[in-house]
Computed example of a mutant assay.
Amino acid sequence: MFTLLKEASIYSPDFLGKKDILFCFDKIAAIKNSIDPSALDDVEVLDCSNKLIFPGFIDLHVHIAGGGGEGGFSTRTPSAKADEILKTGVTTVVGVLGADGVTRSVENLYAQAKQLEAGGLSTYMYTGSYQVPVVTLTGSIQKDIVFVDKIIGVGELCLEDHRAFQPTFDEIARIAAQTRNGALISGKAGLVHFHMGLGETGLEYLFRMMNETLIPVSHFLPTHVNRTGMLFEQACSYLQKGGYIDLTAGFIPSKEDPDCVASYDALKKLVDTGADIGRVTMSSDAYGSVPVFDGLGNVISSDTVTTKILFDELKVAIKEKGIPIETAISLVTKNAAGVLKIHKQKGSLETGKDADCVICDKDLNIETVFAKGIKYS
């Protein structure tokens, strides 16, 4: 019934100092300087005196039903498994379809979200895929958001990519309007989540949305914005004007891809320039394919990553780039919960919220994960 974590160094993500945390079933019951376990029946006590505790991580872009297929059926990637995700510290995921909205479907994505939920994760999802017009579960973007519990928005819509369905600005504006309306009725986030490719016009549509419509910028979340240096510079400008951006883990400059910006370098620049980090998130793009194309658009290689990459790169930001722990962790906790509008349950360690947390040693190695009060090691 009760779990008591004693004398932990707590990052909520703001640093709270050394405190005790009490879980009652799936909720945080109390956070105090000291909690006496003798007053509790049926309590498990964990000595966390040399541990750091963070809120459970939120990965808002995961191909939970698998991805890939741009190089034929042999390049399809498998679906995600709950135990594999949980051990990486991620306790909440948002499922997304990508380029393949044909052999995979919104129905398939929903079923996979329910399966992962049964395995201990908290799950949400976007309706649609790269495709425009958007293919939905109920036949309507608004109905999907209003009536389907897990659907919190639309995505990932593909822009500036040779795999895009070449949507016009007016089409994107109508999709955003439908999403906004569904969000108002349901009280959900109503995100329009954009996959950004290598095209030179980059975030042009999003700047136009900002200037030519009355739809609040909080409904738009472009991801992969550190794919190229040029796109990242646009993203910095978009952020400065009040927009929200999502960095992607896994973009490491190399001989084959020298122009991308690693997430930790992007975060370092944002911090150094005084950007509003509260509107920055970070996701893994896990279980999708990471294809490499030749000049003719043919796949020459394809790989995939897991959600482990998310905390791996945050640790680089903290240990090698000097980013404060609370700043780095906020991207996958408080900030993510805010943009997804699930901040009443997720994203910080506070009384009444879900008992999701990550317990690490002093070197930031994950030792134990709690998801809704259940322990996974």
Score class of each variant (00 low, 15 high):
Phe2Lys: 01
Phe2Tyr: 14
Thr3Asn: 03
Leu16Trp: 05
Lys32Tyr: 00
Asn33Cys: 00
Ile35Lys: 02
Ser38Met: 00
Asp42Gln: 11
Asp42Arg: 07
Asp42Ala: 08
Glu44Asn: 14
Ile53Phe: 07
Gly56Leu: 11
Asp59Glu: 09
Leu60His: 01
His63Leu: 04
His63Thr: 03
Ala65Tyr: 04
Ala65Trp: 06
Arg76Ala: 01
Ala80Glu: 05
Ile85Lys: 06
Thr92Leu: 01
Thr92Gln: 01
Val93Ser: 01
Gly95Arg: 03
Gly101Lys: 05
Glu107Gln: 12
Leu116Arg: 07
Ala118Gln: 12
Gly119Glu: 12
Gly119Ser: 12
Met125Ile: 11
Thr127His: 12
Gln131Ile: 09
Val134Gly: 01
Gln142Asp: 06
Phe147Arg: 07
Lys150Leu: 11
Ile152Gln: 09
Gly155Val: 03
Leu157Tyr: 08
Leu157Met: 06
Cys158Trp: 04
Leu159Phe: 11
Pro167Thr: 15
Glu171Ala: 15
Ile172Lys: 05
Arg174Met: 15
Gly182Cys: 05
Leu184His: 10
Ser186Lys: 09
Gly187Lys: 04
Ala189Asn: 03
Ala189Val: 04
Val192Leu: 10
His195Arg: 02
Gly197Asn: 14
Gly199His: 03
Glu200Leu: 13
Gly202Asp: 07
Leu203Met: 14
Leu206Gln: 06
Met209Tyr: 11
Asn226Met: 08
Tyr244Trp: 11
Asp246Cys: 01
Thr248Met: 07
Thr248Glu: 06
Asp257Gly: 00
Pro258Gln: 10
Ala266Ile: 02
Thr273Gln: 13
Ala275Trp: 03
Arg279Phe: 08
Thr281Tyr: 08
Asp285Trp: 04
Ser302Gln: 08
Asp312Gly: 04
Leu314Asn: 04
Lys321His: 13
Lys321Asn: 12
Ile323Tyr: 13
Leu331Gln: 13
Leu331Ser: 14
Leu340Trp: 06
Leu340Arg: 02
Leu340Gln: 03
Lys341Phe: 14
Lys341Glu: 12
Lys344Ser: 15
Thr351Ser: 04
Asp354Leu: 06
Asp356Leu: 07
Lys362Gln: 15
Asn365Leu: 14
Ile366Glu: 10
Phe370Val: 13
Gly373Gln: 11
